[in-house]
């Protein structure tokens, strides 16, 4: 499955080389590319795993440095997204590293609030496991295909997702837990 996907995206790249059409944003492995402080790819949720896989196998981005979430609920400005990418409330930001090329690369995935799910990168980068759990814990974004999606930093019975912009600081009652049974 990953090989097929990689081949498919490679074909796409051949038929539409980056910057071939002046109007169209450049693409890499089928995902629109923008330049920030590093190269930024904007794959859709469906493309995410295939793009990460192609980047790993073809371009040497072998290490998943970081997975983090951003809640753009109260962001007042227009975000720097390429055309065709619909801004959504949540964004999953993945930072990849290639040791051979000595460069980092960022993937920004839009995740809508009404369906806060995102495919897990666990099969491509096992190291994303704890970081995806953290995003789930802090933002309530569910990673489909994650082997052990549980809260990691907050207590298991915590209600709400603390890093969401509608979870205010200082308004959370202090919670104590009673021991149910002595172990």
């Amino acid at each position: 499955m990953p090989d097929d996907a990689a081949a498919a995206t490679a074909d796409e790249e051949e038929t539409a080389p980056p910057g071939a059409e002046a109007d169209e944003a450049p693409r890499r492995h089928g995902a629109p590319v923008t330049q920030g402080d590093m190269e930024v790819l904007h794959p859709s949720r469906e493309e995410l795993v295939d793009v990460a896989c192609a980047l790993r196998d073809e371009d040497g981005f072998a290490m998943c440095l970081d997975v983090c979430g951003v809640d753009y609920l109260t962001y007042g400005y227009r975000r720097a997204l390429p055309e065709g990418i619909e801004p959504q409330r949540f964004e999953v930001v993945v930072t990849l590293l290639s040791h051979e090329r000595r460069e980092r690369l960022r993937l920004r995935v839009q995740v809508p609030a009404h369906d806060a799910t995102c495919p897990s990168l666990f099969d491509v980068h096992p190291g994303s496991e704890a970081m995806e759990r953290e995003v789930y814990d802090m933002f309530g974004i569910e990673f489909t295909g994650h082997p052990d999606l549980t809260r990691i930093l907050m207590p298991e019975d915590w209600e709400g997702y603390p890093l969401r912009k509608d979870a205010a600081i200082g308004r959370i009652p202090v919670q104590f837990k009673a021991t149910k049974d002595a172990r």
Binding site: D148, T150, R151, I152, E156, T179, K180
Partner: peptide
């Protein structure tokens, strides 16, 4: 699995 364990332990599925 998390649900099953969660009933008996304080940290549940973690």
């Amino acid at each position: 699995v998390a649900g099953e364990v969660g009933r008996f332990t304080s940290e549940g599925g973690q």
